[in-house]
């Protein structure tokens, strides 16, 4: 049944996947095994997205199923088990900069970073530079991601990078920017350490960065 469950998840069969999860729990299947299978299926979806077979609808639907399955499984887990997490690759703080309230691009990046093993903290949209600085102090990320859809937000990105440097945090974190209008010139303008065209590229840039340490 675990295999069927995985298949249903990968094929976006929402009801089927949830029914199977429910059935397995009733039959006493190890909840950790169900979570494992879920993780496995979600990784396959991520891969299909990277390969250009799946698009946004599939990522969003996978997120929906994933949340529902997790909710179902949670009550069956011991507290200790729930806390046990795999070793994370690195910590990423991410937000949409001041003056911009768009969140879709940011959310896709978070989804992809998450399934690729990063611990991600989302600080929302329209985030002023001083909030970025405050959140960095608390969360102590390896990387700070700044998102924007509007060209008007380039200045906010620049100000955020400056605020991070002025607070003396520039050596502790690397900064990456993303969003539809971002390119090499914008990186230079904002003073960020790098950029990514899309979520897939963001994952690979960040993987390289944490490898370099």
């Amino acid at each position: 049944m675990l295999e069927d469950f995985k298949k249903a998840l990968i094929n976006m069969e929402e009801e089927e996947a949830l029914d199977l999860a429910e059935k397995m729990l009733q039959q006493g299947e190890d909840p950790l095994k169900i979570l494992d299978a879920t993780k496995n299926a979600v990784e396959t979806v991520g891969k299909k997205y990277e390969e250009g077979e799946y698009f946004m609808p599939e990522l969003l639907m996978t997120g929906e199923i994933l949340n529902q399955v997790t909710e179902k499984v949670k009550p069956h887990l011991e507290e200790k088990q729930a806390e046990e997490g795999a070793q994370k690759l690195g910590k990423v703080l991410i937000g949409t900069v001041k003056g911009d309230i768009h969140d879709i691009g940011k959310n896709i990046v978070i989804f992809m970073l998450d399934i690729n093993g990063f611990e991600v903290k989302d600080i929302g949209e329209d985030v002023p530079p001083e909030n970025f600085v405050e959140e960095i102090k608390n969360f102590q990320p390896d990387v700070v991601g700044m998102s924007a859809l509007l060209t008007m937000a380039f200045d906010a990105m620049k100000e955020t990078v400056e605020a991070i440097n002025n607070a003396g945090l520039g050596d502790n974190v690397k900064t990456i920017i993303g969003g539809a209008p971002v390119n090499d010139e914008v990186v230079e303008y904002t003073g960020a350490d790098g950029w990514a065209k899309n979520a897939v590229e963001a994952v690979s840039v960040l993987k390289n960065w944490v490898k370099e340490g």
Binding site: F154, P181, N183, V186, Y189
Partner: peptide, 9 residues
């Protein structure tokens, strides 16, 4: 011509 270039080019 990209809006980015018009901004920061």
């Amino acid at each position: 011509v990209s809006a980015s270039m018009l901004n920061v080019g």
